[in-house]
Amino acid sequence: MVKIGNITLPDFPLLLAPMEDVSDPPFRAVCKANGADLMYTEFISSEGLIRAAAKSRQKLDVFDYERPIGIQIFGSDIESMRESAVISAAAGPDLIDINYGCPVKNVACRGAGAALLRDVPKMVQMTEAIVKATTLPVTVKTRLGWDESTKNVTEVAERLQDIGIQALSIHGRTRVQMYKGEADWRLIAEVKNNPRITIPIFGNGDIDTPQKALEYKNRFGVDGVMIGRAAIGYPWIFREIKHYLKTGEMLAPPILEERIENCKLHFTRSLEWKGDRQGIFEMRRHYANYFKGLPNFKPFRMRLVQTESPEEVYQILEEVAQSEALMLAE
């Protein structure tokens, strides 16, 4: 078992990475149904929370079926981050996660996310303020460093552990790399194998097959893996990895019925959480992913992205289920 404070996870847990505009409650619902062990909200602006901005406050929504669930916050001001941790804790998550890894320009260039990798003393001060502000476990997600010449994650891990974080997730790229090139897990392994480190270390970056999950588990010795982009439109990645780790055998890919079932679950949760208009609109970007690889799906997708009626979406999905052309395509 893996422990994060008072949270108990199974051996080698699979974590769903927090992804902006992706890992909302509807998306998390399908990932949880397919075996994700620990999930996080989209990252939430500390300034937005303090100003009670509607979009930021809505991201605090967590549900019992998601547990254990962490709320992830980001920001550049220590007092604002401390306050936002208090606000987040009141929403009832199982842990608070701090984003020190986001590489995008409008975050990092404002001194938040991965920018803190260039100011480790401030990162330590900010983390300590958050740890002291809540009784919940505090965890961190970060990167190897800002660029090739400043890969300082080993120092970051030691110093953050010393002031009380309970787990660390490391993306195997620098900020400058963004999401390009191959993730380098050797430094992640170095952190994990550091005798000073006693907290769980989770690796993130490029895990997109069960075989790779097992290979990285054995090669780098991490306590678990965090999966991001590979889960978009393919929540079955979690169950496939678990099955492969347990049996050494690959599960068959999801049949058409399962694709439809998960798409419906995602859509239903989307309507419940966002309302009909927004729920229909935001679901449109997911259809192609759920039915990826089915050459005869395009006419159905065109109709799905044009309709504004929930009833019609369900009706089209029923037609997909009855389509002999799609069944043959599988």
Rank of each mutant, 00 (worst) to 15 (best):
E66T: 02
T154W: 01
R159I: 04
G233Q: 08
L265T: 10
G181H: 05
E319Y: 00
L15Q: 02
G221P: 09
A252Q: 12
L317F: 10
R143E: 09
L60F: 13
E311L: 05
L265N: 01
L328T: 10
G279V: 14
F238D: 04
R173W: 03
L251E: 00
F281K: 14
A52F: 07
S45T: 09
R173M: 06
S88I: 03
E66V: 02
P254N: 10
G181T: 08
I227Q: 09
E155V: 14
A252T: 07
V320H: 07
E47G: 11
K264T: 10
Q166N: 13
L168P: 13
W236N: 11
E215T: 13
F74V: 03
K292I: 04
S76V: 03
N34F: 03
L328A: 13
I237S: 09
E318G: 07
I237V: 15
L95W: 01
A108T: 05
N194W: 08
E83P: 00
M283V: 04
E148D: 15
G75S: 06
A115T: 10
T174Y: 10
G279T: 12
C263G: 00
I199V: 08
M226H: 08
K292T: 08
M123T: 02
A112V: 10
V2Q: 05
I130C: 12
P18A: 12
F12C: 04
D64A: 15
V62W: 08
L38V: 02
P121W: 13
Q72F: 04
V30E: 10
P253K: 00
R301P: 00
R285W: 09
G5I: 05
W146F: 14
D24S: 14
E182H: 13
R82P: 00
I199T: 03
A53P: 01
E282W: 15
M39V: 15
L60H: 12
L294S: 13
T134C: 07
G111D: 04
I199K: 01
G233P: 13
N193P: 00
R269A: 06
L328G: 02
V22Y: 14
E148G: 03
L294V: 12
V225G: 02
E155Y: 05
M1I: 02
I260H: 07
P295T: 15
L265I: 04
C109A: 10
D223G: 09
A329L: 01
L136P: 04
L168R: 07
T198R: 11
N262V: 00
A115L: 06
C109H: 15
E20T: 08
P13C: 02
A321L: 12
L136A: 05
E182D: 11
A114P: 09
F281M: 14
T268E: 15
E83W: 08
G233M: 12
K264G: 01
S80N: 12
M302R: 15
T127N: 08
E20I: 03
E311H: 01
S270E: 07
G75Q: 06
L187T: 10
A108W: 01
F74T: 05
P13H: 04
M19P: 06
P13M: 05
M327G: 12
V138I: 05
R239Q: 15
A183N: 07
D206L: 07
V222T: 14
F297R: 06
I188Q: 04
P121L: 14
D162M: 09
I71L: 12
P310V: 02
R277H: 14
Y244K: 04
S84F: 09
